[in-house]
Amino acid sequence: MTTTTPAATPVVGPVRLTWLHLRFQFLETVRIPMAVLGNMLFPALAMFFFVVPQREVAENPAWATMAVAGLSFFAVCSASLFTYGLGVAEDRQLPFDPFVRSLPAGPGPRMVARIVNGAVFALFGLVPLVLVAWLFTSASVTGSQLLAGTGMILLGSVPFVLLGMAVGYSLTAKAALPVVQVILFPLAFAGGLFLPPMMFPPWLDAISQATPTRAGRDLLVQALTGEPAYGLAWPVLLGWTVLFAALAVGAYRRDEGRRFR
C-alpha cells in the first residue's frame, strides 16, 4: 500500500485512505438515525400518496414505471444536494474539519468517500420506494433493467453531488439550506420529475431538455423501460457534470476554512 516518493516517505495508498474515510463517514451518518430514516421514508411516502391513488397511472405499467423513475431521481437529486450542500457546509464549520485537512491525505479520498457514502444512502432511500411501487402499482422491470436503472441513477446523481459540493464549499450552512431548496425544486419540476414532460407545453419542454434533471430522468426512463431518451440527453448531462465539477473544485480551493485565530 505504500508508494515511493522523491523524499522516500512511505504514505498510505489512496484506495486504503478512501476506504478509511468511507467507513468513518458511514458511521457518522448512521449514528443519526433520524436523518437516515427521513431519507428512506420521504420518496416512499410521496409514491404512496401521489402515485398509488391515481389508478390510471398506477395501473399502467409504463406510466407507473415512469413515475417511479421520476420520484427516484428526485430522491437521489435531493439527497445529493442536501447531503453535500448542507453536509459539507456544516462540516466546514466544525473545528474537526481543519484537523482532518492537516492529516497526510489530499482532498481526493475524502471527496470520493463522500460521493460513495452519499450513493450508498441514496440507494438505501430507494428501497422502500421500490417496495411500495412493486406492491401497489403495476410498475415492472426485468432484473437487467433494474440493474441498468440503478447504474444510471448513480451516474445521473454525479452532477448533483458536484453541485452540492460547490454550494457546500462556497456558503455557510445557513445560506446553503435556502440555496439548495431554490436550486432543487425548480430543477425537479422543469426536469419532469413531478409531472411527466409529455404534459409540458413546447416552450417548457425545450427548456426542460436543457436541464440536468430532465436529461437524467429520461436516461433513467430509457434504462428502466427501453423508451429512448431525446438525442441530446447524454451531452446535456455531461456538460452540466463538467461545469459543476469545475465549480466544486474551484470552491474547494477557495475555501481555506473560516476561522484563523
Binding site: 523524499a7 516517505t9 458511521l27 484537523f99
Partner: peptide, 29 residues
C-alpha cells in the same frame, strides 16, 4: 500530503466528531 506523514497536530477540544467513539476516532486518524 506526503510532507505531513511526519507531522502530528491536535484537533481543537471542541472539534471531535461527537457521535464517534474514542476508539473509532483513534482508528480513523
Amino acid at each position: 500530503a506526503r510532507s505531513r506523514t511526519r507531522l502530528g497536530v491536535t484537533p481543537q477540544e471542541t472539534g471531535l466528531p461527537p457521535t464517534l467513539r474514542v476508539g473509532e476516532v483513534a482508528d480513523f486518524v
